[in-house]
Design a protein around this nucleic acid. Structure first.
Length: 413
DNA sequence: TTGCCACACGCCTCTACGGA
DNA sequence: TCCGTAGAGGCGTGTGGCAA
């Protein structure tokens, strides 16, 4: 009888590796070149060119608008890195670029801390207000004659959670801080321009002076992006051209897709993994089709956002799925969900959060788009909130939430 | 009148640092 | 070593809206 160890050993020995740099297919990877976003990088350079003059006294602001997967983050990161480098090397001007994700740092205080951390500026994590931290950052930049470009990614999340005073302070910093040289410039990254235009006019006019739109990718553009990533990440001739045609036609905006490059790259990566698992030296059309049927873009977006949730938000979401499954209904009342959440939290040996906090979690999950809520009306005693999932429940989504809960519990332990 | 819950508000605890 | 500081997060409670 063949042992399990022998089976594993054989499979490792016979396995074919066609992806040589898996990290280059990761959503966080920023390549040296971004096909079809060269013009956007030029536009950004045009906005910030005055900083290179050396005696620049004004700060700049620009809004980047585009759907998920249109290359906003990668483009801005690449621009920031190159701009820093060119400013120092070719113009002798010190420019520092800092990227802040407002999904993770959604308060003015956390944003100020993140900028200070990126500058390696020692700031006590407690005891100072965000406004004081910003003043310290400015003094630090003044002392070292540095211009700072802050990219505020997922800026819509900050706008949704911060109060008007905080937004006003961040955006109109130089109304609050007196400075001869305005050293802090902003790149605001949002998914839709609506989040900017619904703001108070005094804030909106200050932000939206310049706007750069990132349209969804067309099929031909996705093809070039995939081709570039194949050259970087795969062995030579390891991906059939039909695969690139198929994926780019599936997701290309002009072919009825969502124009999302991130999901196109993920499909390519998964197709590569399937080919490796099947022992094929080349990624074929059949592998791409299998990968495509596994990846549902809507669920993928939700899965991306799950990684930002904290443990109790995940438990609450799991409780919602469980109670929806039990009741076979489309929505549940706040009270029923809260009971299920308390019971599930205790199963995980976690002290359940109280009502106010649970209500706050629901509000956040709704903002993210994972759940829907509506007020009960006639036909129901009292007033309550009815909660439902914003997507049809998928087994993989349920499994993924469970995985995330286990990871958080392990990291706590 | 009662049951149910949203929401506001104030208080408490935690945290990490600086200073005595 | 202890205490003060101040923001963030969590919690309890009171009030009020709504429907049965």
């Amino acid at each position: 009888m063949v042992s399990a160890k022998d089976i594993l050993s054989d499979s490792l020995r016979s396995s074919v590796l066609i992806i040589k740099h898996k990290d280059k297919l990761s959503p966080d990877y920023v390549p040296e070149n971004l096909p079809h976003r060269e013009e956007k990088i030029k536009e950004l350079g045009f906005v910030f060119r005055d900083l290179l003059a050396g005696d620049a006294k004004d700060s700049e602001r620009v809004v980047i608008v585009g759907r998920t997967g249109t290359g906003k983050t990668a483009t801005v990161r690449l621009f920031g890195k190159n701009f820093e480098d060119i400013a120092e090397r070719e113009y002798g001007v010190k420019v520092k670029y800092v990227h802040v994700n407002c999904y993770r740092h959604r308060t003015l205080y956390l944003i100020s801390q993140e900028i200070a951390n990126a500058l390696k500026l020692p700031i006590p994590s407690r005891g100072l207000s965000a406004q004081e931290v910003f003043k310290m950052i400015h003094e630090y930049l003044d002392r070292r004659n540095i211009h700072l470009i802050v990219a505020l990614d997922e800026f819509g999340h900050f706008l949704n959670t911060a109060n008007t005073e905080e937004i006003y302070f961040l955006v109109r910093l130089y109304d609050e801080i007196s400075a001869i040289i305005k050293r802090i410039s902003y790149i605001f990254i949002v998914n839709e321009s609506h989040s900017i235009y619904k703001l108070d006019r005094s804030i909106r006019d200050h932000i939206a002076r310049r706007l750069i739109e990132f349209p969804p990718y067309r099929s031909m553009e996705l093809y070039d992006i995939l081709k570039y990533r194949v050259d970087e990440a795969f062995n030579d001739n390891a991906v059939d051209d039909e695969v690139l045609q198929f994926i780019s036609n599936t997701y290309g905006y002009d072919k009825g897709g969502n124009g999302n490059a991130r999901i196109a790259i993920e499909t390519l990566s998964l197709a590569g993994e399937i080919a490796e698992k099947e022992g094929s030296p080349v990624v074929l059309l059949d592998h791409a089709k299998k990968a495509n049927s596994t990846i549902n873009p809507e669920i993928q977006e939700i899965v991306d956002s799950l990684s930002y949730l904290d443990l109790h938000q995940l438990i609450l979401l799991k409780a919602l799925i469980r109670v929806l499954n039990k009741s076979k209904a489309d929505e549940v009342t706040m009270g029923t969900l809260e009971e299920e959440y308390i019971s599930l939290a205790r199963e995980f040996n976690e002290e359940p959060r109280r009502h106010t906090q649970v209500y706050e979690y629901l509000r956040k999950l709704k903002v993210i788009g994972i759940i829907n809520t509506r007020q009960s009306g006639k036909g129901m005693r009292g007033r309550t909130t009815l909660v439902s999932l914003s997507l049809p429940l998928d087994k993989r989504l349920d499994d993924y939430i469970m995985q995330q809960i286990v990871v958080r519990l392990k990291s706590k332990a």
